[in-house]
């Protein structure tokens, strides 16, 4: 028994240098996020947003808004409170440090072209290619899953995302002028921009 324990100890010390992807700061605090948002925040699904590469201040604001109920989501509110409990700055820094790969969800080429033509109205805030404006916390929406983008546009249109937020008034007014079916085209386009 003693020999076995000694051997385990020696091997443990010898193996301690091994570094894996969970050694990054904040990685272990983000473990629960992977169930929905994928490994390293690289969401493989259509519905869940990619967190890899998000600006840390944008991630932090989103978590604070979810936790406070300003951005209503029964799924995200409990987890946002957990992230605040664990340390939102660590988790934000972890996702910010992950290289974002664009969504692999396939979109229809015709929808992309229709979306490109309709996207001019988004450029005022999100920039001509949808890359956003970090100083104003206007997010880079390129490469996100189309299902997620479409859902967010619908939530804005119905004033169910961040209801009552003054800074989003103009955006929501614009969304009300866009037919629902165009959202799918816009989502297809922005998800395809690399």
């Amino acid at each position: 028994m003693r020999i076995a324990l000694t051997l385990v100890f020696i091997l443990a010390v010898a193996g301690a240098a091994g570094a894996g992807p969970l050694d990054a700061p904040g990685a272990t605090k983000a473990l629960n996020c992977a169930a929905c948002h994928g490994p390293s925040g690289q969401s493989p699904s259509d519905a869940m947003p990619i967190l890899a590469g998000l600006w840390p201040e944008y991630f932090k604001k989103a978590i604070q808004d979810y936790a406070a109920g300003r951005r209503p989501s029964p799924e995200m509110e409990p987890y946002a409170k957990q992230v605040l409990e664990l340390g939102v700055d660590d988790v934000a820094a972890y996702f910010a440090s992950q290289q974002r790969a664009s969504t692999k969800v396939k979109v229809d080429a015709a929808a992309v072209e229709r979306g490109r033509a309709a996207a001019q109205q988004c450029a005022v805030c999100h920039g001509s290619e949808g890359k956003g404006d970090r100083a104003k916390l206007i997010p880079d929406i390129t490469g996100q899953p189309p299902g997620y983008l479409r859902t967010q546009m619908l939530l804005f249109k119905e004033d169910r995302r961040s209801p009552g937020d003054e800074r989003l008034k103009a955006l929501k007014a614009l969304m009300k002028t866009i037919p629902d079916e165009t959202f799918a085209d816009l989502a297809a386009y922005f998800s395809s921009v690399r």
């Binding site: 992977a34 169930a35 929905c36 948002h37 994928g38 490994p39 969401s43 493989p44 699904s45 259509d46 519905a47 869940m48 799924e75 299902g147 859902t151």
Partner: peptide
Amino acid sequence: VAVAQNAVGWATSIWNDILG
């Protein structure tokens, strides 16, 4: 339907988290 879409998203991600 929106919750069901999230359910599909959850399943896609978590199956990948377990086995991918």
